[in-house]
């Protein structure tokens, strides 16, 4: 099978899922930013004691708050959360990721198990890597110099 069918049939678990920044509701804005920097991720998921996601804090929200100069570092990050962030289950088809990213206009997607617990993070980058694997010649050109897929992004 090729890309068209693969995206409809293969489960989200086939994507290279990232370990998310998962923080408790007591975390401050500063905690979230430091954790996002350490893990080189553009978002933090706030979870309850059962690892059920309560909401997401993203780098784009950070930019918006900085531009408004309304950010207080020691405040709980829950004040700035986007709640009810979309999620997919690990057994959903990969096309569900594409649908969610495009229709909700988001960069990151929470991956949960059948009990709704956070098990990973995917998003635009994971999807791009998955599609790019179907174009090995193009990928090889970009890899001249021995670049593997970067765990951390290097810029924009």
């Amino acid at each position: 099978m090729e890309l068209y069918e693969n995206m409809r049939c293969e489960p989200v678990g086939m994507l290279a899922l990232r370990e998310p920044v998962a923080l408790p509701i007591t975390a401050t804005v500063k905690d979230a930013i430091q954790a996002m920097r350490e893990k080189k991720l553009g978002c933090a998921i706030i979870v309850d004691e059962n690892r059920i996601p309560l909401g997401m804090f993203t780098e784009s929200e950070l930019t918006r708050l900085l531009s408004e100069e309304s950010l207080v570092w020691d405040e709980p990050v829950t004040r700035y959360l986007t709640r009810d962030w979309p999620a997919v289950t690990i057994t959903d088809p990969i096309s569900a990721v594409l649908d969610a990213l495009e229709t909700k206009n988001i960069r990151f997607l929470i991956v949960v198990d059948d009990q709704g617990k956070v098990v990973g993070l995917t998003g635009q980058k994971g999807l791009m890597e998955y599609v790019a694997e179907h174009f090995l010649q193009q990928v090889s050109v970009q890899r001249i110099g021995g670049n593997p897929y970067p765990v951390e992004r290097e810029g924009a």
Binding site: R107, Q124, K125, M128, E129, V131, A132, E133, F135, Q138, V139, V141, Q142, R143, N147, Y149, P150, E152, R153, E154, G155, A156
Partner: peptide
Amino acid sequence: DSSAAALSVMAVCGFRH
């Protein structure tokens, strides 16, 4: 370049834009 080339840059080099 093809669309696939841009997508490969995103995947391999880690640039989103």
